[in-house]
Structures are given as structure tokens and as C-alpha cells.
Design a protein around this nucleic acid. Sequence first.
RNA 1: GGGCCCGUAGCUCAGUUGGUUAGAGCAGGGAACUCAUAAUUCCUUGGUCCCAGGUUCGAGUCCUGGCGGGCCUACCA
Length: 534
Amino acid sequence: MTQKRFYVTTPIYYVNDRPHIGHAYSSVLADVLAGYHRLLGIPTWFLTGTDEHGQKVQESAAARGIPPQELCDEMSQHFRDLIERLEVRNDDFIRTTDERHTSIVTRALAKLHEQGDIYLADYEGWYCTRCERYWTDKEVDATPDQRCPAQPELHDVERLTEKNYYFRMSAYAERLETAIRAGEFRVEPQKRTNEVLGFLAQGLNDLCLSRNRERLDWGVPLPFDDAYVCYVWVDALLNYKSAIGYLADDDAERARHDSWWPVDVHLLGKDILTNHAVYWPTLLLALGEPLPRQLLVHGWLLDKSGRKLSKTKAKDDGGDTRPLPTIERLLDVFGPEATRWFLSTAMKPGDDTNFDWDIVRERVNADLANGLGNTANRLLKMAATTCEGRYPELGEAGERERGIQTAAEEAIAAVEAFPVSLDLASVVGAVRRGVDAISLYLSDERPWKLAKDEATRPRAAEILAWSIEALRLLGLAVTPIVPRAAARLREALGGVGDLDFAAERTFGTLAVGTELGAPPNLFPRVGEDAIPTA
RNA sequence: GGGCCCGUAGCUCAGUUGGUUAGAGCAGGGAACUCAUAAUUCCUUGGUCCCAGGUUCGAGUCCUGGCGGGCCUACCA
């Protein structure tokens, strides 16, 4: 099943936080997903951006004595800086304070209101004045003597009533469940589907989508009641459509939207599952829009003691006095390519994973420096000395030769299966096996020995030819993950102009006599001494 | 409290519908090789599969109950 196009998103990142490794993970993963589709010639659109409204932003701005927009401009820039350092190639970057977004939120809200999907009702609940928020009955009941769940010792709660606007989410629960069960709206991995179905089974309430401006002003005003702003999710989630031209005035823009929607993959962390698997699709159902094809829900990267690694936590543990491996520090030490490799291979989307400096270093050294990098290096050096730096003839294939050809072709096959499988691990696994196959082949055939003797030198050249050709395909396979290194390798193997995967993917197509470049030292080894010490 | 999920070698993880002596990679130990980024290849050490019961001819795999951890529980995003 070939897809005609591929639209992928990351969550929009909330600007109250500094960018951390979780953001980097989502961004790189989305970039790699997009990259494989682009490699295969599939029209691809990759959207990311920042979420900028809400109470925390308003408070942070107030605390610093600056307008919220100024804070957003500053913080949003941090996210752009991060993805730039990661060499992520997004096609668009949306901000929820963009006019192109807020105008669409307004229209969507008006539409929902007109068709009766939004209603005004009293919200009655426990309010903590100190925390400036409501708590649910259940949360308050769980405390002794019905106190504030955050600070039961200090804060008390009072029963308050407030008028708010609600989205008739419950009305769409059944249709959502049907869509999930029918596979029309997929939530991956499977266990997240279970989680969503379990959530639905508990019964769905309607969703409060407004906030009185007395409490929160930093948001999109409701078109039908200026005393309120739109709260959180309706605003944030709509970015996935506003960015591609949903409800735009311009015909061409709307056509653009229709060409990309429904989105193929929403990438998100497990913490925002409900929002994407329940709020968002019910909202879309209400708007009469097709549902996303699938949600890909990933876990978290945790530091060695299992804590969520965000921002800086001063505490270190286990006698490890080194600073925590934040995304900035990882980039400083390993550079963008190795960092991308680590993030891409860090975990199968689904579970959390623990990591530390050594895990990153070992993986990067094993796969990249010792594996791909060293293989490229030794082959090109041997080619320089044994066949004057020109690609030699393959000669006849024996069993071993067919073996490394197959290994390389399996990597290509994994790439070509990617749009359906989205299985990065299978690509990486195939590449690792390919590198191993070449190493083993070289160990067994010893071309360096054969090259010393005039009579056997042609045979040595053949061995190099087979190995180089296999390596060339592995380089193609890895292009979306480490684009720079892959490009340098391709160049060293005679590649010119833009990469044409369809033309270059076939084993045995490298022209005899092609001038081979110098060993490119693709991935420098990272020594223990490169890791910062406290 | 409720829902969902996780707990397998020092580390990161695989373990398909329960079936032979539980696997990989990395790290550790030994050897070989020497084209290469102290690399590569071969051999090797290492596990009460969280605990306790149960079902079964047979359980890492199913059931029950614990222990430990995570996310959500609808107004923090």
C-alpha cells in the first residue's frame, strides 16, 4: 500500500517550559519519520510549533513584568533554536498566537456554537483560592476533611459556582469508540488503545472550554461571549489544522488543507494521550472533519534513577558526579548527528527508557564510530591503496558475496516498508546487521592480504567492490537519521547532485571506475574524557 | 480510590497463539588479526525472568494476591 502523501506533526510545545530532551525526542522522531517518506519520494508535510496561551504563560509574564506576547516570542525562539541545532527540517512552525491560528480558532468555535455543540452551564466545584484552581470532587474527597489536594495542611477549599461554556464531548463518545474499534482512528502502540477505551468506558463528560477573563485573559476570546477566552485544548489542538489552511478565506489555502488532511501521524508523549485520543477526535467529529489516521504515542527518556529528565535537576546520584545529560549538553558533546542517532534508537515508541552519558556514548561509538564510520574508513583506505581509489568490478558472486548483498538489500527493504510499518527499529537493525556482515566478510576474505600479492590483488579489489556497494546502500538507508554523514558518504562513493533513491537503491549500480573519495571520518569516536565532569 | 501499563544478564532491551538446556547488543575476561576511528573477528564470564501462591504434562509467557515504578483520572500543559 503506497501512500500518496504523508503529514506528520509533533505536539506544539508549551512555552512555559525550556526545551528539554522530550521535545528533542519528539522533534527528531517526527523529522526521521518525515525523512523516510521524503527519501521515498512521498510528498511530505512536517509541522511543529509552540503553544502559547494559558495561565502559566500569563503568570510567568506577569512575574517578569513583561507582556505575555514578549515572553512567548522569547520562549518560542528557544524551541526554534533547539530544532535548528538538531538539524530538524520541519516544513512549518506554527504558533498559537499567530493570527492565522487565532482567526481559525475563532471560526471553529463559532461553528460549534452555531450548531449547538457549545452550551453555557454552571460549574460547581471545590476552588482553592491559594492555588487559583478548581479541584474535582474526587480529588478533594481523597484528602482528610476535604482540603486542597495540593496543600492539605495549609489550604482549604470552598464550594464555588462559575458559569462556563462546555463542548458536548459526551455526544460523540460512541462514534469515537466505534472509530477506534474499527481501526479508522488508530492509537499506537496497542496498549494506548486499551487505555483510551478504558477511559471511554468510564463515561465521558462534556469538556469545559472557557475561562472567565477575570481569571485568565491570555487566550482567544470566545466569538459569542467576549467575557471569556477559549481555554487550552480547543485552541491548542486546532493548530494541526489551522497551520495547513483549515477554514481559511483563501481557496488555495483551503485546498492545501484538503490535500493534507487527515493527518497521517500525530506524534505525542504519553502524558497527553487523552487530549489527543479523546478531546481532539470528538472535536473533529463535531466539526464534521475526518479523524487522524493514527496517533503514535511515545514514552519518556528518564535519567538513570528513573526521574523525568527535564530541565536541570541539580541532584546527581549513584556516585555519578557528572552533570545530567540535558539536550544542550548532549549536543555539545556528541553533535547533532550522533544525538539524532541516539534519540532515534533510544526506545521503541511506547515505553520509557533510562539513559545516561555512558549509554549514549556506548551506543554512538558502537553503531556509528566502530560500525558505519570505521567500515567506511577502512574500505576507502583500502580502495585507495589497492585499486587507485577507483571503484573496481564486482566479479562473480559467490555465496559470501550474495550474503552481503542480501544484507544490504534487507536494509533497503526495511526503508521501503517504512511508510507502512513506521518501524525504525527494523531499519536500524537491518543496518547493524549489514555492517556486521561487511565486517565479517572482510575478516574472512582478508583483502588487505590479497592486495599484497600481484596475483591476488584483483580478487582483493572484487572483495572491496562488494563491500563498498553494500556500504553504499546502508548509507542510503540511514540518510533520514544522519543526513550529513550519509551525504558525505554518498559523495565519497561518487554520488553527485540530489539524492535519487529510486535510482540509487539497487545493488550493483555503482559504475566501475567511479572515483572514490578520501576516507570521510564520518563519526568521530567519543572518548570518556569528552563527557563533562562536575 | 478507579483505569491502563511496566518490572527478563552490570546496562539498554528481544522473547511470537504457554513447549526443547531463556536470547541480542553494549560493557567485562581471553585469543586472533593488523586494512581501519585501540577498530574488527572468534571464544568466553554473567540471569531464583520482582515476590508468593494457583492452573497445566509443561509458565518469562495464563490466573489470583502482594511489592516497586510510570501515565491518566477531564479545567497544568
